[in-house]
Nucleic acid binder design. Structure first.
Lengths: 231, 231
DNA sequence: ATAGGATATTGTATAAATTACACTAAGTTT
DNA sequence: AAACTTAGTGTAATTTATACAATATCCTAT
């Protein structure tokens, strides 16, 4: 595809996506390795310019679709970063998005023009990132830590069917503190938002735990009636 | 000043400010009346284009300074609105800011090129606004309603010295619900963030109430140590 | 088959926070 | 001095949060 085939660009206006996933007991984000200067070989948030004829949300969704096989993903706008010197080659204002996905449900698509490859990286142990992406990530992580306490968004990071221990571990990792098991279960079940399935974990080398599903419909109904989730 | 004397503009990139104030028992916002098309004679949020050589936050501060005699104002970025059709004359992406000011401390500056006049309007009773400013205001109002419950930002809307009844009324107006007087006082005083002054209200035709000041220094210290304000 | 290992599951007592609620005090106006 | 207006105050009942440990189930290894 030639450059002239592409839609006209706003040359100074972009989106970047902070895509969180939860896998192997760790909180991870999706990063690409840059193939070009500036910040060649650095890890960076996936991002792209915003086309003249698309909304910003659409641009962010496009970036995500290019990387993964998108499938009803949680996404919200995070913050806009526009400091004069945030990009070494001129002014680029970027709107950062915050996204939560179920790692297992998505396969990473290979290659794109500007990036070598996309990979899941543990948030706890990251190298320096390109541009001001460290700053963007920090903002996103704080948002996640706050939001998970008063909105049931943790489920977006887990498989459809999960155990209470998995859910608890997710909260512990994100909030970076241990939680009492009995109190956690009591509390989370008290909302009546979990459906207990007639099914158990498989292939574990110990007692298998019951599986649960998040009752999204019920949550949406309760929300309309002023219900508030608060862990 | 000639147009050519102005710094170079990003023609498609602006800021808009939602400036809240509290006066005569009502929550108000600062609006300007547009002097030009589009939306001539409509009320609109104060805003302006972002210069090439200034950060977005600076642009927002500039807009506010042009309107009021700025004086340590609370301001934070709210959200970025960039739908393709939000501006009838072409694509304009705007970063909205959210600001709280003490009405009494600020005098409104007269006139600017594009606006007839700035005025405080009660949020509860507004005419249709220009562009998508209604949407922006709604987002800002929700932010205020949420944030006032877990951050002591209400004080930004009151005079330095205030009574507990004034504070309570502020919360009642913003949260749109009545609050029990005794419980409110117990709770708000329990944080230890209010300094009781040796002074009372003046010129009221009934028993004068004690005046209080918000102890910002103490709040900042406590915050560092993990204290959380929550009403 | 059985013992040992791993995680799942469950309840209670105590402390803390929230809620509901009504009268007296102080100053002003008539 | 009576009437009006807002300020200021405490307690009991309920709800919610916290701290804490033993048994159940299933798998693995011997």
């Amino acid at each position: 595809m030639e450059i002239n085939d592409l839609p006209k660009l706003h040359s100074d206006f972009s989106v970047d996506c902070v895509v969180f996933g939860f896998d192997k007991g760790e909180l991870r984000i999706l990063l690409i390795e840059r193939a070009e200067e500036p910040f060649k070989d650095y890890l960076a948030l996936p991002g792209n310019l915003v086309y003249d004829n698309e909304n910003i949300d659409q641009a962010a969704n496009r970036v995500l679709t290019e990387l993964t096989s998108l499938n009803d993903v949680y996404m919200e706008q995070l913050y806009t970063f526009g400091d004069v010197n945030r990009h070494p080659q001129g002014r680029v204002i970027t709107v950062a998005y915050f996204s939560l996905i179920k790692v297992k449900k998505h396969t990473l698509n290979p290659l794109s023009t500007y990036a070598k490859k996309a990979q899941w990286c543990a948030v706890a142990d990251l190298p320096p990132l390109a541009f001001d992406h460290q700053l963007i990530l920090e903002k996103a992580y704080k948002r996640l830590q706050n939001k998970i306490r008063y909105q049931p968004i943790g489920f977006e990071l887990l498989p459809e069917k999960f155990t209470l221990s998995q859910l608890q571990q997710l909260y512990e990792v994100i909030l970076e503190k241990p939680i009492d098991k009995r109190n956690f279960r009591k509390k989370i079940l008290s909302f009546g938002l979990l459906i207990e399935l007639d099914e158990k974990q498989k292939n574990v080398s110990h007692r298998a735990a019951k599986l649960y599903k998040f009752n999204k419909t019920r949550y949406n109904n309760l929300k309309k009636m002023g219900f508030s989730f608060e862990l």
